[in-house]
Every structure is written in structure tokens, then in C-alpha cells.
Design a binder for these strands. Structure first.
Lengths: 333, 333
DNA sequence: TTGAAAGCGCTAACAC
DNA sequence: GTGTTAGCGCTTTCAA
């Protein structure tokens, strides 16, 4: 290990024969130092390869210009677009984002948040609206600015940006019921509060038609594979099932692929299938997957805008920002 | 904005009537302080909600216990498994990872690296083997430990962990040629050096059969949509094409979906299709997608193991670690 | 236009 | 077992 120390302002100052204060001023704005010194300083910086050290500022000002983003899972493609939305705001504003994920585990979420707070992040975007007591305590005592995304049903710590998961699932279920489906099942997965909300929406819709809810929840995370494997269980448990509301597009795609393999016709006359979020995969498949289109990019964008504004002192906080959703029938119901 | 200051060791020390040094010792190992003091200190910590501040250590020791991970794109599912492999090592070792991505742009990569180095990351995992001169300079002058993943064809900065992309594409192409395909096209996308390597492997294989390479490269990033849209171009340009080697599974899936819509039979007698990486989606589809199965989890795991070992002073560096790949015929060729 | 001193929070090293 | 001192690299403040 080369025990080389990183270049500091002092190293540069030594070369040009000035104090580090002058070099610091040059870095902030070259006009702050004498014209004659500028060239020398720049030359020394280039030669030594100076990389500004953020630790001193974090230490003395308690601000890092970094914001933490917690996603439950990096393989859930829902968050691809959300992240792009966040970055469309943080990038031009000069904030570095630190992404972490926690496999839908509140304990891991707690560890991640604690670690991120150790780096003095200025803001935090959470994808979950339910947290451990410790998480609440840490957030409160650190004074970090927080926005929770994806869901607007649960009371947020400070602010929520998302859509109404319960209403989305409910409307999609009503949509199928109106089309004449009689035995609609719900397929959930190991996951989060949003899955529960969607399930509740499904239940409310089914009950409003005086029908009996039929719910399947896997102990596994949602995936295409899960959807493809769970269909057998459903049909063996209740062969009359003529429609399934899936917790997301991945599970729904698994169901569609499984139907294809088994020769089950979608949608008519055998099985209607719906997903959630409206990813490309489902839209390009034949039959195109019915899904709830959610404003994922916008959620990320608005969440980040709100977060940065509040870090900068915005007082007027809208507690809930609901960005809506759209039903898309596709060809699978 | 509450101008509250975060709890420090001094705050706790003040409560229990000792110096912060004692509290610091307690945090490191409770046995280092008198039994009588322990309870008081713990109580104060709980009450105030102390969160350790990492900045002082970063400042004084130049170590952050954080490693930076750069992915070209967060929507490229190839990296899901790689990340899981990395975390399987960093998590138990107590390292926080900071993920950033750069949309395949060397300029953005440079910005991200510069930002991460500002936080004094101890190690850096890069997914690209070609970098801007500035990136090379920064890495050198910062002295950060680096591992480059995915590709073992290009000379690495310090160490490469991956597989041979050129050989993978070449073997898959030869595989198709042996099966009797005569007019195989290659579909690339906007991307990275690995796409170029695969293209080269394809070319070498085709030329070894005295055939003419036929290459399509989109200026867009690879996606299912891209694959589904590019098929028309290919067939209108050269209707004799009887097989396509796609740069990855997403593009290949797009091609398969497009074939389905157009009534083109895969594989016989019309079009053979292959992808790269062997994701679930392609494996579950009918016909199952032919693909090169790559050891993505293992790449992440080995890269992280090597990186941490080297941060801890390991001297014996294997410059190239090739973890191989497997051809999978599926039902699409 | 430049310099000197102090301080952010923590811990290593050295007292006692 | 506990306290004291110094210092990590930078910027803010005050002085020249």
C-alpha cells in the first residue's frame, strides 16, 4: 500500500509560495486572487491532481450536498423511472445522491438510514411509509429533511409524494367487474404496505359486488418467476377463477407467460390479467397487459424538488402530493 | 427550519458529567469504561438519540468505510445480480456502498467519480473499462483502490473481474453457424465497449465461415422497445436474414415480441434469436430465449472480495479474473 | 489582495 | 479508568 497522502490545499500553497487560504479563494472564484497568482495556482493544481475534500465542510457546516435515496429493491423496475426523475432535479442542483436498498426489511432500512445519516446527508427520500420506531427516532433527532414516495395513503413523517394505491387497485378491479368478470383473484407478494393497500382496494371492489375476495400472497418477493409459478396454485385451489389482479407487472407477466405455456387463453374466454405500473414489457407483449399507469418519473421529480426546496428553507409544506394514475385496458381483460 | 445542532459526544458527556473521551471509549467498547458509568452513558445516548458522525474520522484518517459503485444504467437488469453479489460481501464487512450511474457517458462517469472521491470512498467498482484521461488521473492521484467489472478483454486500471465478452459472442455465433444459419445479423445499441467486443466476436465467427457480417447499431440505449422496433429495419434491409445475435436479452426479447406480432416463426423456419446474460424473462418465454448465461452474482462477489482485501493491504493482485460463461440454446435457435 | 487563528467532532497518544 | 492535547482539511472571520 502506497501510504501516499492525498493532495491538500497546503501542498498546492507550498508550491506556489502562498497560504492555503489564497488557494481556497482561487478555487471558490479565481477573481478573488491577484491575476499574477492565478496561473501558478492552476498549474500546481493540475500537476498535483487536487480533489476537493468534502469532509471538512461536512464537519464544520453539517451539510454534505448529498441526499440519500432508499429503495426497497434494486430489481424492482418501478424505481428506474423514479430515480431518473429524482436525478433530473438533483443533478443540476449539484447534489450527489447515495442510493441504498433494504430488501423490504425495516431492520435493514434502519441500518441504511443510520449509515447515511453518519455521512450527514442533507435530505432523505424513502420508498416506504411504514418504519421501525428507531427509524422514526433517528430521523427526528437528526433533523434530516425527509420525503416519502409512492404512496399517499399513510400519514407521512413530513411529506408524501405519490398516488393512491388503494384507489388504483379498486378502480382496476371495478373495471374488470364491469366487464363481467365474476371470480377475480388477487396475487400479492412479499413486500410492503403498498401491496396491502392494493389488496384492500381489490377487496372493497369485490365486496361492493357482493362477491368473495380470493387472495394469494406469496412469501417471496414479486418477480416474473413468481407469477409464472403461482398460477397453478390458483387454478387448482379454485378452477372458477376468471381473472387475476396482480400486485405489479412482473407478476402479471409471469401469469401471462404461464398461460401461454399451458394453453390458457387470455383474456377470453378463460382468464383476464392485470398488472400495475405499465412497464414496456407488458405493453409490447401480445396480448398487451392491462395495467395501472403510474407517474413514476414525475413522482421522483416532484419529490426531489420538494426535498431540495425544503432543505433550502421552504416552510410551506404540502403534506400529501397526489400525482394520480391512469387505467389502461390493454388486451388482457 | 429548526437550527438544531445534532447531538455530539460532548452533549452526552455533559449530561453524565464526564468527558467526551469516556463516551467515545464506551461506544468503542463498553468494557473500556467503569461499570458504574456504563448505564448512565447508555441512558443519555438513548435519550438524546446520538448518531455517530463519520466526518471526523474521514478527515483525520482518510477512511470512510464506504465504497463507490458505478453502473452505466440502473435500468439495465444485468447489474441487479452484480449488486447483490457486491452487497453479499460489503454488508457483513460493514461497508456502506454508494451507488451512482452515468448513462454510459464518460463525462458523467468522471463527475460521479470526482464527487465520490470527495467523500473519501475507500474503494471503487467501475463497470466500464474505458475512461476519460481525467478519470485516470483522478484515480491515480487519489490513490483509491479500484476494480473494474464485467469485461476481461481490456487492460484494467488495477484489476478486472468478469468474463470474455468477445469469446461469448463469438461462441454463440459459431453455435448458430454450426446449426446451419447462413445470414446472421448482429444488433447492438448505444452503449459501451462490451457491445463493441461482442460485435467483434460476432464478426470473427461470421468471417471464419466466409460469410459477410451484417451489423445494426442503434443510437439508443438497449431496451425491449428498441429490439421490437429494429426488426422491421433489418428485414427490410435484408430479407434473407435468418438469425440475429442481440447485444443483450432486452433487445432479444423485443425481437421475439415483434416476431410474435408479425407472425414470424421463431426459430424455424424463419428467424433464430439469441440474447446475452440469461435473465428470467427470456427463460420463461415461449420459445425460451437462447442466451449466454453469465456469472453476474459471482462477478459482484469476487470483485468486492478482491477490493476489500486490497484495501486491507493485499499485495498479490491478480490483474485479470475471468469467471467464464455458459451457452444456453433455449428454443429460439 | 493576502494572512493568521479558530473551530467543526472525533480519536490516538500520552498523562495521571 | 479517565482526562488532556493535538490534529485531520477546510472555510469563516478578523486583521493587515
Amino acid at each position: 500500500m502506497s501510504k501516499m497522502r492525498r493532495t491538500t490545499l497546503q501542498d498546492i500553497a507550498d508550491i506556489v509560495g502562498m497560504t492555503k487560504m489564497t488557494v481556497s479563494r482561487f478555487l471558490k472564484d479565481p477573481n478573488l486572487v491577484a491575476e499574477s497568482s492565478r496561473k501558478d495556482i492552476q498549474t500546481a493544481i493540475d500537476k498535483l491532481g487536487y480533489i476537493p475534500n468534502k469532509a471538512p465542510n461536512i464537519l464544520s457546516k453539517g451539510r454534505s450536498h448529498a441526499i440519500g435515496v432508499l429503495f426497497p429493491s434494486i430489481s424492482n423496475h418501478v424505481f428506474d423511472e423514479v430515480l431518473r426523475g429524482i436525478e433530473s432535479v438533483t443533478e443540476p442542483a449539484g447534489y450527489q445522491i447515495m442510493i441504498a436498498h433494504y430488501a423490504y426489511s425495516p431492520e435493514l432500512e434502519e441500518k441504511r438510514i443510520s449509515s447515511l445519516l453518519g455521512y450527514h446527508i442533507d435530505g432523505l427520500i424513502l420508498s416506504e411509509s411504514v418504519h421501525s420506531p428507531n427509524t422514526h427516532r433517528m430521523i427526528k433527532s437528526s433533523g434530516v429533511t425527509v420525503t416519502e414516495i409512492m404512496d399517499t395513503c399513510t400519514p407521512p413523517i413530513q411529506q408524501a409524494v405519490g398516488f393512491d394505491n388503494l384507489a388504483a387497485a379498486k378502480q382496476m378491479t371495478l373495471n374488470m367487474l364491469e366487464k363481467g368478470y365474476k371470480n377475480i383473484a388477487y396475487i400479492g407478494a412479499k413486500g410492503d404496505i403498498r401491496d396491502l393497500l392494493r389488496r384492500q382496494g381489490y377487496e372493497e371492489a369485490v365486496l361492493s359486488y357482493q362477491l368473495t375476495p380470493l387472495i394469494f400472497r406469496s412469501p417471496e418477493f414479486s418477480s416474473i418467476r413468481l407469477g409464472s409459478e403461482i398460477l397453478d396454485d390458483i387454478l387448482s385451489m379454485d378452477p372458477k377463477v376468471d381473472g387475476v389482479i396482480c400486485t405489479n407487472d412482473d407478476v402479471a407477466m409471469g401469469v401471462l407467460l404461464s398461460c401461454k405455456k399451458k394453453g390458457i387463453n387470455v383474456p377470453k374466454p378463460e382468464l383476464g390479467v392485470t398488472g400495475m405500473h405499465g412497464h414496456d414489457m407488458g405493453q409490447l407483449y401480445s396480448p398487451a397487459l392491462a395495467s395501472v399507469i403510474t407517474p413514476r418519473f414525475l413522482i421522483g421529480q416532484v419529490a426531489a424538488e420538494q426535498l431540495l426546496a425544503r432543505i433550502d428553507g421552504l416552510q410551506n409544506i404540502e403534506t400529501y402530493i397526489d400525482l394520480g394514475f391512469t387505467l389502461h385496458d390493454g388486451e388482457s381483460i
